[in-house]
Nucleic acid binder design. Structure first.
Lengths: 155, 155
DNA sequence: TCGCTTCCTTACGTTGACGTAAGGTTACAT
DNA sequence: ATGTAACCTTACGTCAACGTAAGGAAGCGA
């Protein structure tokens, strides 16, 4: 189906995402990512899937303030969901086991979603707060402008 | 105007916010907060203003993932704005200086707001993503339920 | 094959945000 | 006055998330 994807070197991935090699190694150490393969000499080779994962990691970490532990947890849930979906129509485990896995995943998703909801509320509050402050500051600047002008040369 | 506010001990503040004394000390060390006064023996006394500030710090840190450095920066901008507003109608500095301070503050506010905007977008994306996953998981559970029922006792 | 760059592993260093322990002082109820 | 709980300062410990340096192997264009 997919024709052999381009294999990305460490450098290529780092440049595209603004990360360092050390960061990739570290994320691999703690089980967040792993290279698709290695060269005969042991050099890591990544694919586009890893790049997408890394993008998500960066967003979750930098913009949303999740720790790498939390992120791993979230990614684990996602991959387990994919896993379940994969062998859903395919080979079959016990119905009960599959059910409980799905329930667990759903719970995690709901909890994550409520966390996100909370964060959004906080962000909205912050936004309102700072917008108000900005309005006041701009208003102050407006009035100052007038006094400034009227001082320099009236009319 | 304000009648002497209740003075809060370290313990009182910590209990209300779920923080430790060490945290208060640390925040004081790095210039985030400071006690309103001290007892003759050197014990710290806080007021309600500090509590509000701490609440904001906690929100910015835990929910929005800002570092204490970034937070100090934001609080600095806010307090400088208050400062400007205070001696706005009161004693007067040079108009130009005041203007440039206001401009600077406005810039910082705008940059902070755009950061917040970005975070909200990211959060919205995450939310959509996880809602979709949740929907699919729930759908899977629904269909499983039927097969489960029809297996056990049809009708 | 040579030279240069990229990459490997191993391992110690660093920074932020506190935790924790020590040794002594202050506040307050009895 | 006294016990004890809360507090003080000083200082070393810790954990996450990498940075950085060392010494050597792999890739690769000329």
């Amino acid at each position: 189906m997919e024709q052999a994807e381009a294999e990305l070197s460490v450098e290529a991935v780092c440049q595209r995402l603004g990360l360092t090699a050390r960061t990739l190694h570290y994320y691999e150490e703690i089980g967040l990512i792993s290279p698709k393969s290695r060269t005969s000499g042991g050099h890591r080779l990544y694919d586009e899937k890893v790049v997408g994962k890394l993008e998500q990691i960066v967003r979750l970490k930098n913009h949303l303030g999740y720790s790498l532990n939390e992120i791993r947890h979230m990614l684990d849930v996602e991959s387990r969901l994919d896993q379940i979906r994969l062998n859903a129509d395919n080979a079959c485990l016990s119905e009960e086991i599959r059910r409980s896995e799905l329930e667990e995943a759903a719970d995690m998703l709901r909890s994550t979603l409520s966390q996100i909801q909370l964060k959004m509320q906080n962000l909205q509050n912050m936004k309102n707060r700072y917008e108000e402050k900005l309005r006041m500051t701009e208003k102050a600047l407006e009035t100052k402008k007038y006094t400034f002008i009227s001082q320099k040369g009236s009319e």
